Simulated scan of single mutants.
Amino acid sequence: MPIQANLKPVMTAREVNELITSVYPQLNNDYKAYETVDVFAGGCTVRLNADDRHLRPGGTVSGPSLFTLADIGGYACVLSHAGPDALSVTVSLTINFMRKAEPGPIEGHCRILKLGKSLMVFEIDMVAGPDGQTVANATGTYSIPPKRDK
């Protein structure tokens, strides 16, 4: 994934996790299923620690769980690069499922394709397994709320 030096993060992974925990506590409840593991210029890495709660019949990580990982990747990117406004919202998200995802860690490598004043477009590649194969790929758009006077 190419580094985008013109996009500078304004929050660390720890700060993003703390903000998400405070504004969206129901995401993980008492577990640490979804987390931001890294923030870098132009993107971030998020992880789903998939266990029995995330499986559909047949032992496959469910589509909704992977969709949530993609959405959390976009949210972590917009927070870490546009600023800590919890009111950033998903405008669109399209996902393609490539292969079966087994329980265990699934990493989402998220890259900002465009960051404007009101919209951020991103792509996320979700990889899992010992070979790190792509299990799903998604693109999406987040709306960035206008800056408010404090």
Rank of each mutant, 00 (worst) to 15 (best):
Q4K: 13
A5P: 08
N6C: 01
K8D: 03
K8T: 11
K8C: 00
V10C: 15
M11H: 05
M11Q: 08
T12S: 15
A13Y: 11
R14F: 10
R14M: 10
N17V: 10
N17H: 07
N17P: 01
I20P: 01
S22T: 05
S22W: 00
V23R: 00
Y24F: 15
Y24L: 15
P25T: 01
Q26K: 12
L27I: 14
N28A: 09
N28M: 06
N29H: 13
N29D: 14
D30G: 15
Y31G: 05
Y31D: 15
Y31S: 15
A33S: 14
Y34H: 00
Y34C: 01
V37L: 14
D38C: 03
D38F: 02
D38S: 11
D38L: 09
V39Y: 15
F40H: 15
F40C: 08
A41G: 05
R47H: 03
L48E: 07
L48F: 09
D52S: 15
G58D: 06
T60C: 07
T60G: 05
V61W: 02
S62V: 04
P64S: 10
S65N: 06
S65P: 04
L66Y: 05
L66C: 07
F67A: 12
F67N: 05
F67H: 03
T68N: 08
L69C: 10
D71R: 03
D71V: 14
I72L: 11
I72F: 12
G73T: 11
A76W: 09
A76K: 10
C77E: 06
V78H: 04
V78W: 06
S80M: 05
A82I: 03
G83P: 09
P84R: 07
D85W: 01
D85G: 01
A86Y: 02
L87G: 11
L87W: 08
L87S: 11
L87H: 13
S88E: 01
V89S: 12
V89Y: 10
T90Y: 04
V91Q: 13
V91S: 12
V91M: 08
L93N: 07
I95T: 09
N96C: 00
K100H: 03
A101V: 03
E102S: 11
E102F: 02
E102L: 03
G104Q: 10
G104T: 06
P105N: 08
E107M: 04
G108M: 00
R111H: 13
R111N: 11
L113C: 06
K114C: 00
S118R: 15
V127G: 02
A128F: 07
G129S: 08
G129F: 12
P130L: 08
P130Y: 01
P130R: 13
G132T: 02
Q133H: 11
Q133E: 12
T134E: 09
T134S: 12
T134I: 07
N137Q: 13
N137I: 12
Y142V: 09
S143T: 07
S143V: 04
S143A: 13
P146D: 09
K147S: 14
K150C: 05
